[in-house]
């Protein structure tokens, strides 16, 4: 089979498409003519849906930060353990909110008119980055165990040193361990998959990671 034949088959396909109305493109394009319909499509668009999800995460994150702020302000540093713990939880939430804001900016910057390898890599990176950047929230874990500490308890109650303190130390090691190990490089490990996500979400990040590798390979000149 020669190159010409491949083109001939394709041309035949082309002319058949001309003959038959394969898709209702005309009516869709006509529908798009009205601005209201465009808005409906906008809501349906996958990337816009992802931006909306990120926007909601930002809104909820801000509400949570404000709530924590009220708690810290209301306490007026009467119990420094409580204030510092809640402030740290606030800090990690702010970092996560920052990551979501960054994702919204990336989504808005994606221009489908750019080259395929560039756009597809950016889209795949967006999927893996959501996973990577939100793992920082694990670091707030130990601060949930210190928020109810107070000086008298630490000074006078041996139970503090026997129970509460070891729990906090345990949570600290656990938080650092999770932060360092829950990465896309470790997605092949069963415990990471079990802990982080199941089914489609896991597949989505893993496939995005593989696709980035595939794009890199595709871009490399082959001999």
């Amino acid at each position: 089979m020669e190159d010409l034949e491949l083109h001939k088959i394709w041309k035949a396909y082309d002319s058949k498409l001309e003959e038959i109305k394969v898709l209702n493109l005309q009516s869709w394009a006509l529908n798009l003519h009205s601005l209201e319909t465009i808005q409906t499509y906008k809501a349906k668009s996958k990337l816009d849906a992802l931006a909306t999800f990120n926007l909601w995460a930002v809104v909820l994150g801000i509400v949570w930060v404000l709530f924590l702020g009220v708690l810290v302000f209301g306490n007026r540093f009467q119990n420094p353990y409580f204030s510092v713990s809640v402030s740290m939880i606030m800090l990690f939430t702010i970092i996560a909110v920052g990551a979501y804001i960054r994702h919204i900016i990336i989504i808005k910057e994606i221009d489908y008119g750019q080259s395929i390898t560039h756009v597809q890599k950016k889209l795949a990176q967006l999927e893996t980055s959501t996973f990577q950047s939100t793992r920082v929230v694990w670091l707030q874990l130990p601060f949930y165990t210190t928020s109810f500490w107070h000086s008298q308890w630490i000074m006078n109650d041996p139970k503090f040193w026997l129970i509460s303190f070891p729990i906090t130390i345990g949570f600290t090691f656990l938080a650092i361990f999770l932060y360092r190990n829950i990465t896309q490089e470790n997605l092949h490990k069963k415990w990471v998959r079990t802990l982080m996500m199941s089914g489609p979400e896991y597949t989505s990040v893993l496939q995005a990671k593989n696709f980035i590798d595939e794009i890199e390979k595709f871009k490399r000149d082959i001999a």
Binding site: Y13, D14, L17, E18, V22, L23, N24, L25, Q26, W28, A29, L32, I38, Y41, K42, K44, S45, K46
Partner: peptide, 27 residues
């Protein structure tokens, strides 16, 4: 429109799903 039709056919074997894809492309 031939461009959209051929790309939809090549990436989307399911006819109903193809309609969604074409809409997304036009959008």
């Amino acid at each position: 429109k031939g461009i959209i039709i051929k790309i939809c056919n090549s990436y989307c074997p399911d006819k109903n799903d193809r309609d969604d894809l074409a809409q997304e492309i036009i959008y």
